[in-house]
Amino acid sequence: MRGVGSSRAGRGRGSWRSSKRHLWLLGLMAPLSPFVAWLLVRAFGLGLFWAAGVLLMAVVIPLVDVVAGVDKANPPDEAMTALENDRFYRWCTYLYLPVQYAGLVFACYLWTTAPMGWPERLAMAATVGVVAGIGINAAHELGHKRPTHERWLAKIALAQSLYGHFYVEHNHGHHLRVATPEDPATARFGESFWAFLPRSVTGGVGSAWRHERDRLARRGERTWSPRNDVLNAWAMSVALFAVLIAVFGWSVAPWLLVQAVIGFALLESANYLEHYGLLRAKLPSGRYERVAPEHSWNSDHLCSNLFLYHLQRHSDHHANPLRRYQTLRSMPEAPQLPAGYATLIWLSFVPPLWRRVMDPRLLAHYGGDLSLVNVVPGSVVAPERVSAGR
């Protein structure tokens, strides 16, 4: 289905309109998955459907990606300003939040009233966790924008996953240090996802806290204050969980924690694959070269891009972090993933399979020159892995 997003030229200036325009509403299927799970269980009586969110991410989207294929079409330059200012696309992300929280409340209701055993409750927690994980991506889109209300919406979206510090770290840490050994959110060649996960989580928290501490110190303000964007984002999570526990009882607390962990683990799995092994060169000055398209893995698979607000056009995002998702461009010079995130996230959970698929691609990107790769410090790479990339 190449060309789904291609332009439809009209007779006058400004008449271009994206053929993907209304497809972005499909992204709301993710936060609707707790309701879909309930309907499927009622209709078919099969407890497996409590995991509808996981089935959406692990089965439905990858299959549709295969059928729909890739979409490499970019909007014409003359349409970029009008497309950027089209408020329809903003509402596609805004609407994610009320549906996200309606699903969370509904899940709490089901955990306390529906005839579920612990496997069914765990399956529902996984579904809600998928919603939280994609919600972090909605927060990612909103948190990069200048309007104050969008930045607050980003914090609200992050509250469900206990990951409010991401708002600070991603913008002021990751975007500065991406594709360097100093970035905790850049995975290294030979590093498994399970080794990367704790390094990225702890490194991100520490980096966000240091940024806010230093920012407030420069302004002569206290670190422990409501102006600390890490603290006020975390406070939203505390308030949210406290209200849900007060309404539904302590029995929902374990499942709230489980869904939060699943949510931020999905976010970190996306981090893992976005820059795996990629490295910016150091200049004679000691500084790193500017971020370029070759420092992010990209994917133009249509369906997963629709659900992730073009996150897979990651090179353009790093080049233009304020650019809204609908205007992000496919960049052929960037290294390309063999599938969409919805497929590769699950592959990353199995390190031998991940390395079998991705290591040759990474080494081929650098012509087999291991000195250009972001390698795990002190690791020894087998010669056949280097030759595999030639």
Rank of each mutant, 00 (worst) to 15 (best):
1 M>R: 10
10 G>M: 10
13 R>F: 13
14 G>Q: 10
17 R>E: 15
23 L>Q: 04
47 G>H: 10
54 V>H: 01
59 V>D: 05
61 I>F: 06
63 L>W: 11
66 V>M: 13
67 V>L: 15
69 G>M: 10
73 A>Y: 03
78 E>P: 02
81 T>Q: 14
81 T>R: 15
97 L>R: 05
98 P>L: 09
99 V>K: 00
103 G>L: 03
104 L>E: 02
105 V>Q: 04
107 A>M: 09
112 T>Y: 06
112 T>V: 13
113 T>N: 14
115 P>T: 14
116 M>L: 15
120 E>D: 15
120 E>Y: 04
125 A>Q: 01
125 A>E: 02
130 V>D: 05
132 A>V: 00
135 G>M: 02
139 A>N: 06
144 H>E: 06
145 K>Y: 03
150 E>A: 06
153 L>S: 06
154 A>V: 05
155 K>D: 14
156 I>M: 11
160 Q>N: 12
169 E>K: 02
169 E>Q: 12
171 N>P: 04
174 H>I: 08
175 H>G: 12
181 P>F: 09
182 E>M: 07
188 R>P: 03
194 W>N: 08
199 R>L: 11
200 S>T: 14
204 G>N: 07
206 G>W: 03
207 S>H: 09
213 R>N: 12
215 R>A: 10
216 L>M: 12
219 R>S: 12
220 G>S: 11
224 W>G: 03
240 L>M: 14
242 A>M: 08
242 A>S: 15
246 A>Q: 09
254 P>C: 07
255 W>T: 02
265 A>L: 07
271 N>S: 11
279 L>G: 07
290 R>D: 14
293 P>Q: 10
295 H>N: 10
308 L>K: 00
309 Y>T: 06
313 R>V: 04
315 S>D: 12
320 N>Y: 15
323 R>H: 13
324 R>K: 14
346 W>E: 02
358 M>G: 02
365 H>K: 14
369 D>N: 15
377 P>S: 08
390 R>F: 12
